[in-house]
């Protein structure tokens, strides 16, 4: 009986009565889950690509005109437009773009005259590490503070933490960035005020150049995460199973970090995922404040210069990045909470 049902379907049969639970084939379930996710992913990318393409298609401003300047003759303009394929109808242009992406040929930047792929890669070498460092800052600040505040609810320590997180929530990150530059670069001279030497040229210098912007981004995000961790912990600490853990005579750190924190982390993880995606896609302002050659600045400049291939591809890339991060968060959920099944 047990064997039969195991073969018939891979779902876990958990009866309320005291029967034996048939374990599903984990591998099969995972594969099915991945296929489902990939389908959704493809659909999403299609929709993003269509909307990006449409928006840029109707956007005023002619790339050919911008490339050639205002003194160009109508003939040269028309020639360039033909060369760039800008005279083609919407669907032809869209399909050419897609075909190039799918065959790995990619697009070329009008402005830099190089593959967009290379541009994205070089910018991600700045934005990627910066986003990660910002998240690391956010996590190492927020988790201990949030847990500490929850353990000392309504006492002075908690009130102080809450005050500073409120302050953090109200602070725009570019302003914090500027303050940090004024204090640590201009007055104390510990950091460069901006710029990025490049990983190959100067590894430690590059790391140092990302430290301040990552900190500015991280502190602001830590404010939200601290509050979230605190409220989530407070809720979990009231749960029956935490009382059970105390009753078992476990050490405080086991109760807090093993029994309570894992349960409290689930909502926190969601927000962390959203924040990381957002950081990868949208550190435009801070990259400008610190003069960093990141993805935000790339797309910012490309929009100004009507470098349409760059804008399109970068936006698409950002969408992919956000989806991938969320996918990783989904996988993490299932690791943290066994009740969440990958279905």
């Amino acid at each position: 009986m047990r064997l039969k049902s195991g073969l018939k379907n891979s779902h876990c049969i958990c009866r309320p009565a005291e029967t034996i639970c048939v374990r599903p084939a984990g591998f099969l379930k995972m594969t099915r889950y991945l296929i489902k996710k990939l389908n959704a992913f493809a659909l999403l990318l299609f929709l993003v690509s269509i909307s990006v393409f449409s928006v840029l298609f109707v956007l005023p401003g002619d790339p050919a005109q911008i490339m050639l300047g205002i003194n160009a003759t109508p003939e040269t303009l028309a020639n360039l437009r033909r060369e760039l394929g800008l005279d083609q109808p919407f669907w032809t242009q869209y399909l050419t773009w897609m075909a190039n992406l799918l065959t790995g040929k990619g697009s070329r930047s009008l402005n830099y005259d190089m593959p967009v792929y290379d541009l994205i890669l070089s910018c991600m070498a700045v934005t990627g590490p910066m986003a990660l460092m910002a998240m690391i800052f956010a996590v190492i600040i927020s988790l201990p503070l949030g847990i500490y505040a929850a353990r000392h609810q309504n006492r002075p320590a908690d009130v102080t933490v809450m005050f500073f997180t409120q302050l953090g929530l109200a602070t725009p990150e570019f302003w914090l960035g500027i303050l940090l530059i004024l204090l640590l670069s201009v007055n104390l001279g510990w950091f460069a005020a901006g710029g990025f030497p490049g990983w190959r040229a100067d590894f430690w210098g590059s790391l140092k150049a990302l430290l301040l912007p990552a900190f500015a981004l991280g502190v602001i995000r830590a404010s939200i995460l601290t509050r979230l961790t605190r409220s989530s912990m407070l809720e979990v600490l009231r749960e029956d199973y935490v009382r059970t853990a105390w009753a078992k005579g476990l050490r405080e750190r086991t109760v807090i970090y093993v029994h309570a924190l894992r349960n409290a982390l689930i909502p926190v993880l969601t927000i962390m995922g959203l924040q990381l995606g957002q950081l990868l896609a949208g550190a435009i302002i801070i990259e400008n404040v610190y003069y960093l050659p990141g993805l935000g600045r790339l797309v910012f400049n490309a929009i100004g210069q009507r470098d349409l291939p760059v804008v399109r591809d970068v936006v698409l890339f950002m969408a992919v990045a956000v989806v991938v991060v969320n996918f990783i968060v989904d996988l993490t959920y299932a690791t943290v909470d066994p009740r969440i099944r990958l279905e």
Partner: peptide, 18 residues
């Protein structure tokens, strides 16, 4: 947990779900 142990009313919520 060593000399005095306790069993609670709600078995549904008294065990850690994770």
């Amino acid at each position: 947990g060593r000399e005095i142990s306790m069993i609670f009313q709600e078995p549904m919520t008294s065990l850690n779900p994770v």
